[in-house]
């Protein structure tokens, strides 16, 4: 009887140890490479009844938010503590939706309904044939079924799509999910704490070029003709469309890392494996480039929200001149440059 009791105790002890180890491992895996949950006073963002001193607060708004929709917090008229997506200076990594001085033309931004932006030049999503998500003209939202952030379950608007994301620690990069399932695939990566308002080779976002969880796989949900071997012309040059999620260096490529002039702000790269890569890891400067991991991605050239250049480019494509300094396109395409770093 005593033996049985001891055995049960040992089994229970082992179960507890295994449980603790499992959750420790799970938490490490979960925390690694993802953003933290939001912190701060609940009252910074929420109002329980949209009422103060017997007077309505102007809402009520979904999710009991002080402001209406995504723009209620994430614009210059919103919460100062929230990243603002319509700034005119000190822009963050995603760029800006501002139409006054930055993305002044339809071609320079994603026109999202939530910010009352409309698209007049195009009538269907570029490269959308056979895409996972189908967005009707002028139907794009910040989040939800026809949005970028949050879940993409059919019928979900921005508020329902993003619900819970801000409080979910380490779930996915910038609340970006792949797929339309209720439990979709998380995008890997680590967000810079100030969204790259300050950015350098050792202060930047960590993007992923994972085959199914990379940021280009995310963009592929709408712009699928611009991604993948079938659409871009095979696994190697000659390409038919500019490739994404392909290795820059190493076997099968003709480039040497030392000859490029990669920069986190100008021509960022993604990591095929983000393991061990943090927002302060310098994998841009000469001599620090991780040749086995570096890959080109959509965001190497584009900013997701908007820029001052056509096609949401990080630079003016019309201004890129062959035999120029290693800048913009020529940061990678050094063979077409003058050989001089910018």
């Amino acid at each position: 009887m005593k033996e049985v009791t001891i055995k049960i105790k040992e089994e229970n002890k082992m179960k507890r140890i295994l449980t603790i180890m499992f959750f420790m491992a799970l938490s490490v895996v979960a925390m690694y490479g993802m953003a933290d949950a939001i912190t701060g006073q609940c009252s910074n963002c929420h109002t329980m009844h949209d009422s103060q001193d017997g007077v309505d607060g102007g809402g009520p708004n979904d999710l009991l938010l002080l402001g209406s929709g995504c723009g209620g917090c994430h614009t210059q008229n919103g919460l100062p503590s929230a990243p603002q997506v319509d700034k005119t200076s000190n822009l963050s990594a995603g760029g800006s939706f501002d139409t006054t001085t930055i993305a002044t033309d339809d071609s320079m931004r994603h026109d999202v309904q939530d910010l009352s932006l409309t698209e007049s030049a195009i009538t269907s999503t570029p490269g959308k044939t056979g895409s996972i998500l189908t967005v009707a003209p002028n139907a794009l939202t910040c989040a939800g079924a026809v949005g970028c952030h949050g879940k993409h379950v059919a019928g979900m608007g921005s508020d329902e799509g993003i619900k819970g994301s801000h409080h979910a620690p380490n779930a996915t990069y910038r609340f970006l999910w792949i797929g339309t399932a209720t439990s979709p695939t998380a995008v890997l990566g680590t967000g810079d704490v100030d969204y790259e308002v300050t950015v350098s080779d050792s202060d930047h976002n960590v993007y992923s070029a994972h085959a199914t969880q990379g940021v280009s796989s995310f963009c592929n949900q709408c712009h699928n003709q611009f991604h993948g071997e079938t659409e871009t012309g095979g696994p190697s040059s000659p390409w038919e469309r500019h490739p994404t999620d392909i290795a820059l260096f190493g076997s099968g490529t003709s480039w040497t890392a030392a000859d490029t002039d990669l920069e986190a702000d100008d021509a960022p790269i993604a990591m095929i494996d983000v393991t061990g890569k943090t927002t302060t890891t310098n994998y841009y400067s000469s001599g620090t480039i991780d040749e086995t991991n570096s890959a080109v991605m959509c965001l190497s050239c584009h900013r997701a929200h908007g820029t001052a250049n056509a096609d949401l480019l990080r630079w003016s494509y019309a201004g890129i001149l062959a035999n120029g300094v290693k800048d913009a396109c020529l940061s990678c395409h050094y063979k077409q440059s003058s050989g001089v770093d910018d």
Partner: peptide, 13 residues
């Protein structure tokens, strides 16, 4: 403008 909604996302607690 009155009420809490009928399901999540709620507009009032």
């Amino acid at each position: 403008g009155e009420g809490m909604g009928s399901d999540s996302p709620w507009v009032r607690h």
